[in-house]
Nucleic acid binder design. Sequence first.
DNA 1: CTGGATCCCAATAGATACTG
DNA 2: CAGTATCTATTGGGATCCAG
Lengths: 147, 147
Amino acid sequence: MKENERKYRSGCPVAYTLEALGDRWSLLLVRDLALKGVKTYGELLDGWEGISTNILAQRLKHLEDHGIVSKSRDPENWRSYIYELTDKGRDLAPVLAELILWGGKYDRSDDRITETVDKVTRDRERFEREIRAGDVKKPLSSPSADE
Amino acid sequence: MKENERKYRSGCPVAYTLEALGDRWSLLLVRDLALKGVKTYGELLDGWEGISTNILAQRLKHLEDHGIVSKSRDPENWRSYIYELTDKGRDLAPVLAELILWGGKYDRSDDRITETVDKVTRDRERFEREIRAGDVKKPLSSPSADE
DNA sequence: CTGGATCCCAATAGATACTG
DNA sequence: CAGTATCTATTGGGATCCAG
């Protein structure tokens, strides 16, 4: 099946972007791949708000098809796969930064949010550089402590 | 009904943002309200990629609930409504800019895209300022010529 | 054991027709 | 013009099953 590529010939770059990322999960996956040390299917499965297995597989495939995520064997654990952002995926760093800043500006409901936003605000250059370098461990936002 | 506010307590500003805007239409509507001179239900209906009436109504309500869009009577035409971005909505200008730049970088399939992207790249300050000022007519991207 | 496919079913998105 | 009503299609959750 062809995903949802129907319309969107549009001539608008926003439409193109939303075709690739305009659903409730894709950007959250990109966030986790970019900002947390997360790399495997299993790590992506828990981690946070609870995506189900079929949706995760489907979204990963979708992101792969769009050249945003790459999939390879884990050299240290052959039975596992590694999902990573491609260059194209890492180029989403500024988008992530803006999403964080906007969300942070209007949702101060949680101390962790304040903290994350402050970090991006204070050193946005570094934030984007780290994502692009792809060598982030856990630079920002560690939602590990979920209830 | 309560939309989809179930999860997303998350403590992550990205999740907050995506709860408000993480679907295929919301950001396109924001784009049209921000970048084109579009203000009414009817104008939003056509214009581009073809949203259906119930979805448009639903998304507008959703954006209103999230304080991104405001609705008021058109003083010059009492039988019509005016939809406008609120301050919160206009604060999405940097997000839009990044979506345009990313989309434009990877989709050069259309001359109009190149054109739009070039404009944002060349004078991003002005782009964001105009959106925030709310006095844009048709500053960027005029997809008027759809087939 | 990890990464996924499949099935079932609930909930949401969406097209079309119709209404105040 | 600005929506609702109705109906269909797609998405998504959760459990289970299956392959390497």
